[in-house]
């Protein structure tokens, strides 16, 4: 009784704002850490490059250059939140991109080609989801099949790159909505819109909360009567859809479809999501965090190219950051297991 009484007294004496905040949003700490890293990178680069780094142009370009990765990371966040993984996104992006470019080159109007790109991605996602949910295939293996399928189909569509002439698609990239020195392109808006929609779905719909519940404990979610099967298939469809959308964004960005696009991009997307504070075992994380993760990724890339260093450092630094976050996550999980 006493323990309970003291707890109640604690509450009565009024918890500080900080305590309330931590008890409500303790799960956001890794995301704040990512924000911290991002700021550190900015400041460090600014000092190192003697005030040449934090310019409206550079920061606008950060979103522009990484819009496709941001879209992929959003889809990946859904999957990882359920405790799954989707290796297929890079291939799906390549497939969707080359499919769109091919259709447009064959004279198919954009209003048909663009939905076809999205549906192609979603279909591969659906296949993965069905394998995972109904055939108990490990997400890793199921999405591996998706990776092969997407990559192979991309080459089936075309073995070489196809230039896009369609103006409406190029408009997505060429348009600059300006505000002083700042600018944003429709592709950037698409990426930000994806983040906003995803955040809404994850936090304010039953589907989204079920995604988190599955990541917390699939068994519990099932016993609570939640629609687990639907949500589990759903996250892979969403990830596939995001893969398709990323294909659209990348095609607009590069002005062409290319079947070799996005080899290894799934790893970048996973790294961005993890750096953004989503835990790979599922249940904890935020799509906003994944956005920060993508920006951290993009900033490192920009800094490296500014410094004229080898791009290979990129992979090493991202790998090291990934390791850091994984070890920290492991410690957090070990601690919470110890509490139970």
């Amino acid at each position: 009784m006493t323990a309970m009484a003291t707890r109640i007294q604690e509450r009565a004496s009024g918890p500080s704002f900080l305590q309330t905040f931590l008890s409500r949003h303790g799960g956001m700490m890794p995301t704040f850490a990512a924000v911290g890293i991002l700021l550190l990178l900015f400041v460090g680069a600014e000092i190192f490059l003697r005030g040449d780094f934090i310019t409206p142009r550079n920061i606008s370009a950060l979103l522009l250059d990484n819009a496709y990765l941001l879209v992929l990371a959003v889809g990946m966040t859904f999957v990882i939140l359920t405790g799954g993984i989707d290796l297929s996104v890079g291939s799906v992006m390549a497939f969707s991109g080359i499919l769109g470019a091919k259709l447009l080159a064959d004279g198919v109007p954009a209003v048909v080609a663009v939905p076809a790109m999205l549906l192609g991605g979603a279909a591969i996602g659906l296949m993965i989801g069905i394998l995972v949910q109904y055939f108990d295939v490990q997400p890793f293996i199921a999405s591996l099949a998706g990776l092969f399928l997407g990559r192979g189909l991309a080459y089936v569509v075309s073995l070489s790159s196809i230039k896009v002439e369609e103006s409406s698609l190029l408009w997505l990239q060429s348009t600059r909505i300006r505000l002083g020195d700042w600018y944003i392109t429709p592709t950037g808006l698409i990426a930000l819109g994806t983040v906003a929609i995803a955040a809404f779905v994850l936090h304010l719909t039953r589907f989204g909360r079920t995604v988190y519940a599955i990541g917390g404990s699939e068994q519990s979610a099932r016993l609570m009567g939640l629609k687990v099967a639907r949500a589990k298939v759903g996250v892979y469809v969403i990830s596939g859809l995001c893969g398709g959308l990323a294909g659209l964004v990348l095609t607009a960005y590069s002005g062409a479809g290319y079947p070799r696009n996005g080899i290894g991009t799934e790893l970048d997307a996973i790294a961005a999501v993890v750096i953004g504070g989503t835990i790979l075992t599922g249940g904890r994380g935020y799509v906003i965090g994944s956005m920060i993760g993508v920006f951290v990724y993009g900033t490192i890339k920009t800094i490296i190219s500014f410094m004229g260093a080898e791009q290979s450092w990129m992979q090493i630094i991202v790998g090291a950051l990934l390791l850091l976050f994984i070890v920290v996550q492991r410690a957090i999980v070990a601690r919470s297991e110890g509490r139970r």
Binding site: H203, T205, R209, T210, Y212, G216, M224
Partner: peptide, 24 residues
């Protein structure tokens, strides 16, 4: 059978959350 990664309120209401036009 609870979900430590969700809020207390969600653990109580999950699956029958009060909604307005489909939005929790």
């Amino acid at each position: 059978e609870v979900l430590p990664n969700l809020s207390v309120a969600e653990n109580i209401c999950l699956g029958r959350e009060p909604r307005r036009a489909g939005v929790i």
